[in-house]
């Protein structure tokens, strides 16, 4: 039932979003420009953002603080093994984006780290000279194929997103994530549903712990925290979809042009 619903949703949303295959880098940048992405449900988004802030204060932040008390080598091991699992989504997306070389490298990385690195706890591949790991997801692949971002959305618990990224996330539960398939979707004797949810929760807490002071700092020094988070999320997605340091390479100078202070 969930599978059918997800497929219908993905098809509908993909058709309603402005699909335009074969775009070049400049068009990708412009299409994903944060200032051009509409906040169609701002009232609802702000309410959800407030709810998420309360959940963060009551649950995630205390958990992240507790997690920070764990010795650093253990935290690195957890972080490495979660990154290793994310290869299972990154590799198919490397292929979807036509980046076969990176797909090969990431497959090698996954095999080496899962075996020699003992289930990904140790990042042996980096030690062997593998290139820096860059995560990819279905939202990025859709973006790279020319699908527009649609509206900005704030999801309960999961946080900032866009219509396109929601479609991308749904792809994980309809067969796009091998880790989900062997834990939740298929009844294997090796894994339980809880393994998947623990790993997802762990990823969130690991992220929160790494950014504990940065997020607190941002909140304390923002006049509109909601708008700051939205801007940072959309800039990050724009950069990831273009797979480059776009802000440095192509940030439009025209906005600064007429401001002469020297």
């Amino acid at each position: 039932m969930l599978k059918k619903l997800s497929i219908i949703l993905i098809t509908t949303l993909t058709l309603t979003l402005n699909v335009n295959a074969g775009t070049d880098g400049q068009l990708l940048l412009s299409k994903n420009d944060p200032s051009k992405i509409e906040d169609c449900f701002e009232g609802l988004n702000r309410a959800t953002f407030k709810l998420n802030q309360s959940l963060d204060g009551a649950i995630f932040k205390p958990l992240a603080k507790g997690y920070r008390l764990i010795p650093s080598p253990i935290r690195s091991g957890v972080s490495n093994s979660l990154d290793n699992l994310s290869n299972l989504v990154t590799i198919p997306n490397n292929l979807l984006q036509g980046d076969f070389k990176e797909a090969g490298i990431n497959t090698g990385r996954f095999v080496v780290n899962t075996t020699l690195g003992i289930l990904g706890i140790f990042d042996v591949a980096s030690g062997l000279g593998f290139t820096e790991y860059v995560k990819e997801d279905y939202g990025q692949s859709l973006g790279a194929m020319g699908v527009g971002p649609g509206c900005y959305l704030v999801l309960p618990v999961l946080g900032p997103s866009t219509t396109r990224d929601v479609v991308g996330q749904l792809s994980n539960v309809v067969g796009g994530d091998a880790w989900y398939n062997v834990t939740v979707k298929n009844d294997t004797q090796y894994f339980k549903d809880s393994d998947y949810y623990i790993s997802r929760g762990g990823t969130g807490i690991d992220f929160r712990a790494k950014n504990l002071s940065a997020i607190d700092n941002l909140e304390k020094n923002s006049v509109d925290f909601y708008a700051s988070v939205k801007s940072l999320y959309l800039q990050d997605r724009q950069q990831k979809i273009a797979n480059s340091d776009i802000i440095v390479d192509t940030q439009d100078d025209s906005d600064w042009e007429e401001i002469e202070t020297q």
Partner: peptide
């Protein structure tokens, strides 16, 4: 300052635009 690809000036601009 562009931190991990995220521009602080741009974030500030979008924050003010929102208000």
């Amino acid at each position: 300052l562009i931190i991990e690809g995220l521009s602080l000036a741009r974030t500030q601009k979008e924050e003010f635009a929102s208000i």
